[in-house]
């Protein structure tokens, strides 16, 4: 990132990034927990899988490795936000479940078992 020299430059960068963030909302967003706890339960493989499989799908997407949501009981967790829908968090995701998430939820909008309640 280039050096920000004053408040004005910071503010315009902020606005620019907010616009970009808003554009991302039109895409499928996949957040993969990558904290120590998540990695210990296998999230690195899940991240790898999404990175490999998503480019083959006919949808626009963003994949983000993140910290954790604090859901230790269900790591690895993956949060998927389809354009226009609320976030859905899937628990205990391995590559098998990751495939299901892509095939059922991302492609067809059909929920699978093991969704963690968020209300």
């Amino acid at each position: 990132m280039k050096q920000l020299k004053n408040f004005g430059e910071f503010e315009s960068l902020r606005q620019e990034l907010k616009v970009k963030e808003a554009e991302n909302e039109k895409k499928v967003r996949i957040y993969i927990a990558m904290a120590t706890c998540s990695i210990a339960s296998g999230s690195a493989k899940v991240l790898e899988y999404f990175k490999e499989e998503m480019p083959k799908q006919p949808v626009e997407f963003v994949i983000k490795p993140t910290g954790c949501l604090g859901l230790c009981h269900s790591e690895p967790t993956v949060e998927v936000v389809l354009p226009g829908s609320g976030p859905v968090v899937f628990g205990k995701v391995d590559t098998k479940r990751a495939k299901l998430i892509i095939d059922e939820y991302i492609k067809n909008g059909k929920l699978i078992d093991g969704v963690i309640e968020e209300n």
Partner: peptide, 18 residues
């Protein structure tokens, strides 16, 4: 914990956007 799980901790742009 407002950003935990919602941003890439290794990307400053994500943090600034929020």
């Amino acid at each position: 914990l407002r950003n935990c799980g919602h941003i890439d901790p290794e990307d400053l742009s994500d943090y600034i956007a929020r």
